[in-house]
Design a protein around this nucleic acid. Sequence first.
DNA 1: TAAGGGCTTTGACCCAGATCAACATGCGAA
DNA 2: TTCGCATGTTGATCTGGGTCAAAGCCCTTA
Lengths: 248, 248
Amino acid sequence: MLNEPMSSLSQNCSDCPIRHRAVCARCDGDELSKLEDMKYYRTFQAGQTIVWSGDRMDFVGSVVSGIATLSQTMEDGRTQMVGLMLPSDFIGRPGRTTSAYNVVATTDVVMCCFRKKPFESMIERTPHIAHRLLEMTLDELDAAREWMLVLGRKTAREKIASLLSIIARRDAALQLQGTYGPLVFDLPLTREAMADYLGLTLETVSRQMSALKRDGVIELQGKRHVTVPDFNRLMEEAGDDSDGGVLV
Amino acid sequence: MLNEPMSSLSQNCSDCPIRHRAVCARCDGDELSKLEDMKYYRTFQAGQTIVWSGDRMDFVGSVVSGIATLSQTMEDGRTQMVGLMLPSDFIGRPGRTTSAYNVVATTDVVMCCFRKKPFESMIERTPHIAHRLLEMTLDELDAAREWMLVLGRKTAREKIASLLSIIARRDAALQLQGTYGPLVFDLPLTREAMADYLGLTLETVSRQMSALKRDGVIELQGKRHVTVPDFNRLMEEAGDDSDGGVLV
DNA sequence: TAAGGGCTTTGACCCAGATCAACATGCGAA
DNA sequence: TTCGCATGTTGATCTGGGTCAAAGCCCTTA
């Protein structure tokens, strides 16, 4: 099912929406045209599994649009989300043949893919790519460590507030909303996915969402559409220094 | 306090104990001698803070011996360990001037340091270093994600067993003990540090250690010296696939 | 227009792990 | 040899979040 986002995509890297943030961000025109020759697009429907943990993965690539999740599962079914992949994020690890995680499309997803072998040899020859990939990996590591604090030490209410502030912040950055005034966004995750993200049950997620609504920290239109009247209030609820709260 | 490990250290990279695992692992003789000119050793006593979160950090470097921890703290004092730095691990992030974490020496630590600026420009010119650093960062990211599953979804008993199996596995790899037969090692962490690692209280750690001992999963000589009679049993207690349990 | 199936909310109850408190152990300094 | 302090253990009690269960709310399909 090639849907709208796919067909509206330019094949031309130079006006790709993630051109300036993805692995290719630092490439010059020459490098970019090499990548352009190698790349191909793939689309995945909401709910579709992109790769299973342990499966062979013969491509790597960037999320162009949509949202995917990385998760780990124990034999008895307990699952923990370990990564939330947004547009420009890179999926797949050079130098490894199998996926360590389940990668699932949460919304419809378009990826800009490269076959793994050619991409790996491209990395060897192109420091710009290697360098950008290092930078992105270091950022992901920082995000993972922030998340570890959330998982290990925060209360359920703080966890929910933390997740909301992450999504609100990202959305504001994307849409260039100002820091002040109410923030408005749609939750891209079900209650269950939020629970898997935060190490909670979906019932607890639901209860805490209701509690934050009751206390005026957020407003809900429907299940997924959220308004945050006061971002600093949300940051306080998340247990973060409200000072560092400059958006972007 | 220049203590024994320091004075017994060779200044010569070619017989450095972490030569084949650290950032410099892939360097050829030429590159290595450049690094050799830049490097300097620093020692830290057990308990000493190497850098505070938020502080300027004008060096980066490898742990040569000893153990350091990375941790994050909330205003009210809740703390979560987010990294356990062992010999050959790299501390500090190129391209960032301040530390995002508290870095603390858990035992006496020797580091092989480089001033940040020269090291960064060395990276630019030396793909071998950049590539190795990327590889190490990806490994750390995998470890962080494994840890997220532990923090988010495992019970206290499973958490303790997970930590013990990580330390046991590492020790076995270092000392080339066989996979079979009992594993013996010393815990490099206090009960409190274990708690900070696992998102528990120190009381719970103590109770679960006692329980694992009572159930014959581990034996304790003193508080810190641990014997694991059956590694697969420990893996089962950790809730991991006991199959993948090949050491190293 | 109804029926069925995701997703979400809410209630009642329970329990793993936190909290509070007392005590034990072991080690370095005086 | 004892004192003091850091580290660790164990007990009693409390509670945040899990578990189990029942509905509610949409949206799609018939």
